[in-house]
Nucleic acid binder design. Sequence first.
DNA 1: CTGAAAGCGCTAACAA
DNA 2: TTGTTAGCGCTTTCAG
Lengths: 379, 379
Amino acid sequence: MLACKRLRTQFITFTPLLFVSTTIYDIAERADVSTATVSRVFNDESGVSEDTRQHVLDAAAALNYRPHASAQNLARQHTNQIAVVAPVVANYFYMHVMRGIQHALADRDMDLMVHAPANPQDRIHEQPDPKSLNTYMARALQPGRNDGILLLSMPLTDEWADRLAETSRAVVLVDGEHPRFESFAVDSREGGYKATQHLIDRGYERIGHITVEYDPPPARYRREGYEQALRDDNRAVQDKLIAASDERPFAFSEKGGYRAMTTLLGRKPRPDAVFAASDMQAMGAMQAAHENDLRVPEDLAIVGFDDLELSRCAGLTTLRQPARTMGTRATRTLLRRIEAAGAPPVSSTVFSPELVVRRTCGERPESEAASPGFVLRDQ
Amino acid sequence: MLACKRLRTQFITFTPLLFVSTTIYDIAERADVSTATVSRVFNDESGVSEDTRQHVLDAAAALNYRPHASAQNLARQHTNQIAVVAPVVANYFYMHVMRGIQHALADRDMDLMVHAPANPQDRIHEQPDPKSLNTYMARALQPGRNDGILLLSMPLTDEWADRLAETSRAVVLVDGEHPRFESFAVDSREGGYKATQHLIDRGYERIGHITVEYDPPPARYRREGYEQALRDDNRAVQDKLIAASDERPFAFSEKGGYRAMTTLLGRKPRPDAVFAASDMQAMGAMQAAHENDLRVPEDLAIVGFDDLELSRCAGLTTLRQPARTMGTRATRTLLRRIEAAGAPPVSSTVFSPELVVRRTCGERPESEAASPGFVLRDQ
DNA sequence: CTGAAAGCGCTAACAA
DNA sequence: TTGTTAGCGCTTTCAG
């Protein structure tokens, strides 16, 4: 029986290009035990005499043995991998979230896969077609790929939610919400309200807004908060003060904000303040203002949303999202669901975004007069 | 034979908690063909009559079939996954590199794993012990985990290089170099030289340097460039003008720069200019300067290394690394090596870092007088 | 064009 | 404590 396994060793002699690593059979043979025993010393730890265990370990060391991940995954029926799927991998906000994820993964013997749209042309914030099989989303859902999925800012149609539930895999949402899944997000509506309220308090007259065209939930709620604040102050919501970014692949980007701001500045009357749906958009808006010889905040006040590190050095007034914390908590929850066979009740935790006042809203914050200043957080 | 596979369906009835997805056997049965045929329609595309192919596809659709990734990986002996291993996942520089990686992966049907040290206490820039089996590095090397590895800023001892070569897997280095592997990096020594030279040209007298304690190659070369520039100007290299960050997990960080700068400012004579080994360190240094009531650049000039987006808005003079390009090119090379069975000659490509002058070095760059300004790159 | 069957490397009952 | 053996789900010769 072992003989048939030995063939592989022959094989490698004939085609040296194809590398074959040493297997459990090789070390079973060398340690003169069964493969089951070898497997045991590499897993259970228990039920193996100290003597044979040492033999096995020696053989493994001598042959430089490492278990084959795919084989383990197949046999165990789980992968010890979790996936994060997001509209863009490399983005400031997600970077902060990833820090939290990594933190929660520490010492957990779990690996991390990242899935993001391959084609930058896609309107990634829109849900890919659930039918299509090769989207980044579909890949993450493929059986045998991971034990659980972290969805970052992914809007969920019911169709997709069904698909996710069908796979009966652990799923946790970050910066998103759905009744069927655990979620961690900031109250975007509250944030939009606070931002706008602040601008109102500061005496601005024509408060504009930069949003996202395809209207993903976070952007939608921020806009709703903006509109509510206006109404609560007995102001009308004016379409001409609102511009939407349709930048691809990521409308929350700098470039999107730049374009939207440019649009806004081309209309009459010009806004004298703007609340942007993201910090990066706010950055782009500042750039646009500069190009139009408008000073920030004298001619145009700006408030963003996120509170990236970058925003601090730019002196941007913004609404803080606890990105890292969200990542950590979401991951912990995911891990718990993966481990717990049953299905504990779903809860959604919502954070309250905190207004961080800096200079782009026309205020001179006491502590940060001499910008740039930095918070020293741990990596 | 198919009968034994059917058991699984029974099984699921008894233990509904364990989810079992539909397999190739299920659809073979339904379409009344062999599993080989099913496999063929999902792979080859060829050698199957249009008729049966349609049957199979119908059955697959009806049963909502998706191939099991682990099983494919095991049978095919490759995973269609590449891994990136880096000292920190979520870091500005790596984020830019990741953009490039993602870009190169577009439409390639490849997935991305990220491996980074689990324990933030580790001195991650030092090589983990090649003997230990459960480090992030070892995990990336496990057989059956990936088809190729991208090493970001990972210093390579010969021992590790051996281990890597042993697995005969495709390996490409980014921001690092080793004779045995393909690599993409910036000439750090040249960068250090240029930075220092610039400061000399601007008339600074006591030019300090912030480096990294455990002396990873990029930091080492930057320091060497710094020292060389000093010597070429007939100046002595003074230890008291150099401070090393030993911040963990990542000494190139803001916090590391902050601490090193604080140390430097505690010594006499104080430097009147500082070249930091990274932009984030430079940011920390600026913070330290502010806390000591020193104005930048009047009292202290600062030059960084990287040219992150953030640096632009901070007005930081720095040396630009083409991070995104490095990511893209490295990934393309990796993919090529994975596909090509043979071993094409190893080449190492070195980019020349470009000096980007902004205001922290006391210069008033023409184009960016009204900072913050931003480049509008695509996401 | 299609099917039978032997793996891929490991795990986990079940028996001994 | 250890070995036998039947899978995990898919791929891939090799016949037919």
